[in-house]
Design a protein around this nucleic acid. Structure first.
Length: 466
RNA sequence: GACCCCAUCGUCUAGUGGUUUAGGACACCGCCCUUUCAAGGCGGCAACACGGGUUCAAAUCCCGUUGGGGUCGCCA
């Protein structure tokens, strides 16, 4: 089966989470079937389209590693073609000129609503003699849609959806200024681009019926539709900014990995038995429309974090260090020395195990960037150095300075021996050391920290305790 | 309001008429491990919206109710 999918965002805002999932599903579906995934920017609304939004969408897609086939299409470049096809329909008597004023339309809408009908435009110019055309009024071009019968959208996710044709009015193809509408442009473009599968949000389901009518008017084959349920906020209501209706770059800034976000989004509304952590390769081989759920799902940051932490465990060390350092530099607006970078890499095992996001990782890694400042801000840590805590730290320093083989094992053996010699529980020694070394009462293993810090820095930090 | 879609633990979901005391994951709770915090291991809590049918048998099929969502622009 030849498969061509497309993602068609309008550049009026960033690439939000729902759009990202739509793009992912299209990408996956095309990959799975060995087809092509195309990108089309729907920029026909010049007033609302911005180049910033366009850049944000492209950057978001690239960050998510959802690459599209060939160059992206710009809908605005097809305007002449869209106009021409509408004229064809007009010539063939499948469309007509309508001279209704906006006021008339508003009135019609109100009447329709009052009478409990969904049909808005009453088709008053459908069969009217063009000679009746009022002077000085620019007409719109409307499609002559079927007056009776039903239009069936055989949706791959929702199943067959039947809409009575009496519910659908004659849609506008060309505005009175001659420019094509979205409904018209989409159909022409999808046909011209050879799109075989239209996978998009559920909010377009009712559009599918209208677009089907247009495809039929042209005598074109209707693509297969698949409307995926929308993502809602944690409360089941429409996704708001507070709930995560953010651009994907915001997710990057919150410290999520693209692989993790993709995995999370994939599982939101799609499943493969009990699989939770799914690699891209597996996703490509498993993904199909029949496993897409029919009900809307809710955004769950806790689950996203959990998935993200798994990907942080799996991420390549060098890459992880790079991301961590970049984040530190961004937030501290200060460089990280090569020495500190080496320490972070050395202590990465313990750091990554405790981090759910890159941001948490960057924060935890600060113990390798800055020395603790006394008196410590952390009250619990400060308390660990009170009484004989400070003495234990200095005793440890004296002992550790004699160690030549600076390995975790040797360091641990030495510290354990010290605790034993003083008849102290191991924790009694370890906690003050932790406070002296990291300025905190919680950190990775102190032996790992000492190893990563190196002997000189370790001794220096221990001796710095007042 | 009209039309369309949806309905299994708090959340994401498995389940396609009997294999189900409804499974997994996240979250939550407890225990273990333990130098702290995590991670990990073990265990626990927790759902078929409701009402009618169909059938020997229904979470699974049908109808209705309720609830949620979407659409109703010369926006996309």
């Amino acid at each position: 089966m030849n498969v061509v999918t497309r993602f068609a965002p309008s550049p009026t805002g960033f690439l939000h989470i729902g759009g990202a999932r739509t793009a992912l599903f299209n990408w996956l579906f095309a990959r799975h079937h060995g087809g092509q995934f195309l990108l089309r920017i729907e920029d026909t609304d010049r007033k609302r389209s911005t180049s910033e939004a366009m850049d944000a969408i492209l950057a978001g897609l690239r960050w998510l590693e959802l690459d599209w086939y060939g160059d992206e299409f710009y809908q605005s470049r097809g305007i002449e073609r869209h106009k021409a096809t509408a004229q064809e329909l007009l010539r063939d008597g499948k469309a007509y000129l309508c001279y209704c004023t906006p006021e008339e339309l508003t009135e019609m809408r109100e009447t329709a609503r009052k009478n409990g009908r969904s049909m808005r435009y009453d088709g008053r110019w459908r069969d009217r003699d063009p000679a009746d055309a009022p002077k000085g009024v620019d007409p719109v071009v409307r499609l002559k849609t079927p007056l009776d019968g039903v239009t069936i959208v055989d949706d791959q996710v929702q199943g067959p959806v039947c809409v009575e044709n009496t519910q659908l009015d004659d849609m506008i193809l060309l505005r009175s200024d001659g420019t094509p509408t979205y409904m018209h442009s989409v159909v022409v473009d999808d046909h011209d681009m050879g799109v075989t599968h239209i996978i998009r949000g559920d909010d377009h389901l009712t559009n599918a019926a209208r677009q089907t009518q247009l495809f039929s008017a042209f005598g074109w084959e209707v693509p297969t539709f698949a409307h995926i349920p929308l993502i809602h906020g944690p409360d089941g209501k429409k996704l708001s900014k507070r709930h995560g209706a953010l651009g994907v770059e915001a997710y990057r800034d919150m410290g999520y990995l693209p692989d993790a976000l993709r995995n999370y989004l994939l599982r939101l509304g799609w499943s493969h038995d009990d699989e939770e952590l799914i690699s891209t390769e597996q996703a490509v081989s498993w993904f199909d429309l029949d496993a897409v759920g029919q009900s809307p799902s809710r955004m769950d940051f806790a689950k996203l974090e959990s998935v993200n932490s798994h990907y942080i465990q799996q991420e390549d060390s060098a890459k992880l260090v790079e991301l961590t350092i970049r984040r530190i530099v961004e937030s501290q607006a200060a460089p990280v020395t090569l020495e500190a970078q080496g320490r972070i890499l050395s202590g990465l095992v313990g750091l990554r195990q405790r981090a759910k996001t890159i941001n948490e990782l960057a924060e935890a890694a600060m113990i390798y960037v800055n020395r603790p400042v006394f008196p410590l801000d952390n009250a619990k840590a400060a308390r660990l150095l009170e009484n004989d805590g400070g003495t234990l730290v200095l005793d440890s320093a004296k002992l550790l300075i004699t160690i030549d083989d600076w390995s975790e094992e040797t360091i641990e053996a030495a510290v354990r021996k010290l605790a034993e010699s003083k008849s102290l529980g191991f924790g009694k020694v370890a906690q003050p050391l932790r406070a002296a070394l990291t300025g905190s009462n919680a950190s990775p293993s102190i032996f790992e920290v000492m190893k990563a810090l190196g002997k000189n820095e370790t001794i220096a930090r221990l001796n710095a305790v007042p």
